[in-house]
Design a binder for these strands. Structure first.
Lengths: 200, 200
DNA sequence: CCAGTTGGATACGGCTTCGTAGCTTATCGA
DNA sequence: TCGATAAGCTACGAAGCCGTATCCAACTGG
């Protein structure tokens, strides 16, 4: 008989299924972009039926917000080296480790198209997280400012964004995430001088 | 009789038509995004027929590269104030003036989706311009470095990108282009310190 | 072990875009 | 003035996604 080709029914249900759909949504977004995200595409990638998606979510955007919310949270940088330069590089490394993940790709895609889909960006902020305060270098900077390793007056809305800004700009220009050496250069040539430690 | 509703034939031809199509392409891109850009949409917006587009371009992307190439070139910043700070702010103002234009919107959209459409980004670089060298603050910086107003060793791939990086980051975070005061803060708190002029 | 739940497959009409074709007609240039 | 060129219009079948309905089968919990 040879009923042939391994039919593995093993039907997913409940949470396991939802997780698979979330993953598929993020992967689909990364591949086709926000404008092309469709229930049909997500279902296909998750190897399930559209019906299953519509039973839980009304639109691809709604599904997407859920998927981002359920994604693993960002590692939070800590100041452990007792050395500002080392800890800043570590904080930017956390950022560059996060950036290539599906969830980060999704977050960046949503934010960069916020003019086109304002409701989606809004949902990201209200239902997932509020990153307006910044979370990478500023964690480290606040630590050192509180412990006397840094003049608190140097903590401004500008200086706390320099590291992240440079990482994004380099990623844009190079089409890849910065290397460890490039992160060190950002810290040495841009961040530390702005914090009151002259270069050279 | 009343053949009614003002029929204004006034048929566009040649260059005038092409210009209108280019404008329509950039406007359409700004509105619907790169993923949704279609010949149908561009034709609709330009009030012409798809046939006319297909006679000249094989795809929306090809048309788009043409449109960007024909767009008005970016104003080039000059160092005229004999004052580094003032000229840097002026250079960033040129950048923020350019950013809201249709051509700039298109360029940024293409670059930010370069992973999705690598051929398009490549065409942008080879057929339009090569912005990898930077053109805004670096013009000013090179001028001052050559004339002794700035230590040439402070001119690095990092420092020449700080201004632009901060403008982009602020635009991303705020959803709008930075104000003049914010540009001044970027120069005072990030750029000048990195160039060897300590803050405070 | 059985019944209720829910995942999975298929199909539908409606809509939009695709790329091409056939045709009319405004406009240009000789 | 008149012929050539090219813009504009309509239509086409193919394809994809939409949102929904229907049916079947696998899994669950009692």
């Amino acid at each position: 008989m040879e009923k042939a080709v391994a039919r593995a029914p093993e039907r997913r249900r409940g949470e396991a299924l939802v997780r698979a759909i979330h993953e598929a949504a993020l992967a689909e977004l990364a591949e086709v972009g926000l404008g092309q995200l469709s229930m049909e595409g997500i279902a296909r990638r998750a190897s399930t039926a559209k019906t299953v998606l519509y039973r839980r979510w009304a639109s691809p955007h709604e599904l997407l917000v859920d998927a981002v919310a359920q994604a693993h949270p960002v590692e939070v940088p800590t100041a452990t080296a007792d050395d500002l330069r080392t800890d800043l590089i570590a904080a930017l490394t956390v950022l560059t480790d996060w950036m290539p993940t599906p969830a980060a790709t999704a977050v960046l895609a949503i934010i960069s198209e916020r003019h086109r889909y304002p409701a989606l960006a809004e949902a990201l902020y209200t239902e997932v997280f509020d990153p307006r305060g910044g979370t990478f270098t500023s964690t480290v900077l606040r630590h050192y400012a509180a412990n006397g390793g840094l003049d608190p007056r140097r903590l401004t809305p500008i200086t706390t964004q320099i590291g992240e800004a440079m990482v994004f700009k380099l990623s844009m220009d190079l089409g890849r995430v910065p290397t460890r050496d490039e992160l060190a250069a950002i810290v040495d040539e841009a961040l530390l001088p702005a914090l009151g430690f002259p270069p050279g």
